[in-house]
């Protein structure tokens, strides 16, 4: 398993980055966390991700370590932590905010960039192959609804996604 744990060497506090992250959290409030650990105990990957620890680190401003870690990308987005948190902290959503901040700073995992580029190129996460279209025909299904990929690309440009993902499509 290729999990990189959060590095706690050369601890750095970054108040500016912390404020940026706090400003971008759209639901939940990390300052309400009482470190009860209910989030982590319900997390299917709680032995690796530890949402309560992530919330604590955000509160302390140890955000640089977080956004450069691989751990934040291992959350399955199952929302169990957020569902069960008695303080309405919404750790799953905080994780999204951390990922968004990491993305802006260029830390998107390569595997995710690839999937994003599919959307940019084809308007879908996975392209519909000729084989699948043939299979549809054989099953008596109508053709898959067409997608104007150029339009989707324009939308992604408009909203700033292309810039973040570093994407000019070749």
């Amino acid at each position: 398993m290729s999990v990189q744990t959060i590095s706690l060497k050369n601890i750095k506090m970054d108040p500016a980055l912390r404020s940026e992250i706090l400003n971008n959290i759209v639901s939940g409030d990390p300052s309400k966390c009482v470190q009860c650990g209910i989030c982590t105990s319900g997390c299917p990957l709680g032995y690796i991700i530890k949402p309560h620890r992530i919330v604590k680190m955000v509160n302390l401003g140890l955000v640089e370590q977080l956004i450069s870690s691989r751990e934040i990308w291992l959350c399955t987005t199952c929302f169990t932590c957020s569902e069960r948190c008695p303080q309405e902290v919404d750790p799953a959503n905080i994780l999204f905010t951390l990922r968004n901040t990491a993305s802006k700073l260029g830390y998107v995992p390569r595997e995710l960039v690839e999937i994003c580029m599919n959307i940019v190129k084809d308007g879908r996460i996975i392209k519909i192959s000729a084989g699948r279209e043939k299979e549809r025909e054989k099953l008596g299904l109508p053709k898959a609804p067409p997608v104007d990929a150029e339009k989707i690309r324009k939308m992604l440009e408009e909203v700033g996604f292309l810039k973040i993902i570093g994407g000019t499509v070749k």
Binding site: V26, R99, C116, R124, P145, V147, L156, G160
Partner: peptide
């Protein structure tokens, strides 16, 4: 009634990179 020209909803993939992108794609 098949929804034509819809494309991807964005899902947690785009939400991970930029939450607003996901919202815009889905609202479309």
């Amino acid at each position: 009634v098949d929804l034509e020209d819809a494309g991807c909803c964005g899902t947690v993939i785009t939400r991970s990179v930029d939450a607003k992108t996901n919202l815009v794609m889905s609202t479309r």
